[in-house]
Write a protein that binds this DNA or RNA. Structure first.
Lengths: 166, 166
DNA sequence: TTGTGTGCAAAAGCTTTGCATGTTG
DNA sequence: CAACATGCAAAGCTTTTGCACACAA
């Protein structure tokens, strides 16, 4: 279920993850003859210090607030690069607004969205994999990824928390 | 799998469906004190004469081409009404563009989207229902609907058909 | 007749693009 | 130093909104 309950080791674990993804990104950029700019690494690091889901504008604003000079264009550009090398996942939770989340080191999962308060929960179910395999074979598709969102109301506790797990 | 292979009886079956949905919509409008305008019924009928998936603009253009005078605003307004009374389903297939399809008289299904050519196939799998039930209970959510999209490449036949039928 | 619905165009919101400048390799 | 990336602002696209007019009840 993807909770890393915050323990004493969390800090260093987060730092370890960050070092790893920076390396992975660096290698990816090299292999594709793309340039290693400070903006690209700063955005990646920022994403991995955040938790859960965010949109491009929120990421942009958050970097601005930290006095990091970056442009929207670069944020969008870098997000696309990161999605391409599987360090970030892109979602749409029923609105015309792309939501992103870090993906390296986290278990594959799907989402449950409260249509009233926007809260996003995560869950894993192995049956999805079976469905992907079966349908790919049946319909002669090479299934590469999927998106499963369940929508509904969170019973009772609609205003108590936002979509963060942290 | 939602194919109504076109047979001699298809015409009258389609007409029957159309009469039914017009009645359902009419009742829905009455019950909610909404007005029965010719535009609303024309849009519903147009949708049920189309096949597969379309976006708001395509629907608007198609009605214009038939010399039916309607505005984009009314198309959007009516689509929302129809989604609310479950006569039309709204989807997002990975792009910032809402796609719609008629839903009355068709089995609940999910989608398989070719990321190369945009083709959309449909499939049914009862395991989804189980997942919805289980996760709703587990996470204390009242799950009302869901969206499952599988993405991949359709093997071989990518350019042969477009995603439109109309 | 009253007020909801429509059409039109303008505005809004997210994302992409063009161009001059800056920086990586 | 050459090509690519960035920043900024403008443009693009889908969707929403405001307002005057039309028409359903």
């Amino acid at each position: 279920m993807n909770q890393m309950t915050t323990t004493m080791s969390t800090q260093s674990h987060e730092e370890k993850i960050i070092r790893e993804v920076l390396n992975i990104f660096s290698t990816h950029l090299e292999q594709n003859n793309l340039r290693k700019t400070p903006e690209r690494f700063a955005i990646l690091e920022e994403i991995y210090r955040r938790d859960d889901h965010f949109d491009a504008e929120a990421l942009y604003i958050h970097m601005k607030n930290q006095n990091y000079r970056v442009s929207r264009a670069t944020v969008y550009n870098t997000l696309e690069l990161l999605v391409n090398c599987d360090l970030v996942k892109k979602h749409q939770f029923g609105k015309n607004l792309a939501q992103y989340e870090k993906s390296y080191g986290f278990k594959q999962h799907d989402h449950l969205i409260c249509v009233d308060c926007g809260k996003v929960l995560e869950f894993c179910d192995p049956r999805i994999q079976n469905i992907k395999n079966m349908m790919g074979e049946l319909l002669k598709f090479n299934v590469t990824h999927h998106s499963l969102n369940l929508y509904g109301q969170c019973q009772g506790a609609c205003e108590k928390t936002q979509s963060k797990v942290s």
